[in-house]
Design a binder for these strands. Structure first.
Lengths: 234, 234
DNA sequence: CGAACAATTGATCCTCATCAAACCTTGTGG
DNA sequence: CCACAAGGTTTGATGAGGATCAATTGTTCG
């Protein structure tokens, strides 16, 4: 089942592309379907393709030699990933991309985008815009990890998740769907600590926790904690 | 005292620029001289200019609301900094830049570079190359901070420093110049811990430590530690 | 219903941060 | 040229914050 090229305009880097360019991209792409838990690519693989997620959800992560991993970000529909290999020839992926649910993605040759960029300034420019965003986010998370206590980091991670993929319920609560382990990898801690913090927050009526699911009842309070208001815990 | 425009080609982003372009950049720039400890700009300032360091040394850092700070990177001669504001109009700097010694820099209007990029693909392309490098480094450091113990992080930070600004002595040692505090901010720990680790390494004959100065005697060993070989300490 | 997986909670331990005090090193001014 | 001040460094003592381990309790799904 082929993709409508015009759909590609939903990808931020392609927002300014002409219809013809979009068609070119789809013509130079392959559709890949990946099952939950399987991988698009591994850290260290040759970065021949970059991807646009068409459906499903995935995560970008990095692991150290001991196998411990950290989540860099989650990828939602119409987001691009694996694009760091585009600028250098023969680059390798600096991270691993794993499907969180059954997903399909468009795989486009990195070489092709690199060539297109030579004659289409809007492409480099929009890709750069995306990259500056990543740099800023990573710098912030780095500082957070270096200087803030876990509770604040967890609060912040939940807020980031909420803005990326939270769904609002009728009464203003925000529903999130992830495991304790996921949240731990996103905030640089362990699933045990996440569990304890969530339990405490639940006691205070701040959230409601369930299996692979958290309901934020008082987002406002969460923001306060993430910004360093004294914790309710203790 | 004006800069020779052709010198600008030493800046990685300008390596493919024409002589005329280089002249244009210098014509649209102002030279700024900053004393040791003073600031080029603060996090949150409007990013009107980006900079090219002509002489001296500076550091990019981020601080949290409590005033604790982390070092993002050090800036050496002919490196560009403050360039994240180039792609978006009316952006603000996401970090603070402070001179480590008396420094001079060329301040170029962000607007100007943005306009130049519209018609000169090599500019966006080379800037992107730089940015992908930053993203990768930040991702790595983030993972390191989240998963590795201090000793390894300190080892890694020293190796990064060594490659950026270390000077080799006759007998293959590497000389570095920084305070314990600097190194602590670069590896997400405290100056006390850095001091202890260095003392221990010194006992093992791995380094020689002095005031604002470290001599790496066995770089090889340091690499081993940073890569997770069991520590000598203990 | 049972297996597989997610979450909770208590007990324990270990790594580092923090605080305090003393010690070096370097540069300056009398 | 010495004394002193300022800033960098070291080292010990202490404790907090989380990681880790282990055991148990949900929850979901085939």
């Amino acid at each position: 089942m082929a993709i409508d090229p015009l759909q590609l305009r939903r990808v931020s880097v392609f927002q300014n592309a002409t219809d013809d360019d979009l068609k070119l991209f789809t013509q130079n792409s392959v559709e890949r379907s990946i099952e939950e838990g399987e991988f698009f690519f591994f850290q260290g693989d040759s970065a021949v393709y970059f991807y646009v997620l068409i459906s499903g959800r995935a995560k970008l992560m990095q692991m150290n030699s001991a196998g411990q991993q950290v989540n860099l970000r989650t990828i939602n529909e119409w987001q691009m990933f694996g694009a760091l290999g585009v600028v250098r020839e023969n680059a390798t992926y600096p991270a691993t991309a794993q499907a969180l649910e059954h997903s399909t993605a468009l795989a486009i040759k990195s070489d092709f985008l690199r060539e297109m960029m030579q004659t289409r300034p809007y492409l480099s420019f929009d890709l750069m815009k995306l990259m500056t965003g990543y740099i800023q986010e990573m710098q912030e998370r780095y500082r957070e990890l270096a200087t803030e206590k876990v509770e604040r980091r967890i609060a912040h991670a939940m807020l980031r998740l909420a803005s990326q993929m939270g769904t609002k319920t009728i009464n203003g609560d925000i529903e999130l769907s992830f495991t304790r382990q996921d949240l731990a990898e996103m905030s640089g801690t362990t699933l045990y600590t996440v569990s304890r913090v969530l339990s405490e927050w639940e006691k205070q009526g701040l959230v409601e926790a369930g299996r692979e699911r958290v309901l934020i009842r008082r987002p406002h309070e969460l923001v306060r904690i993430s910004e360093g208001g004294e914790s309710i815990i203790g």
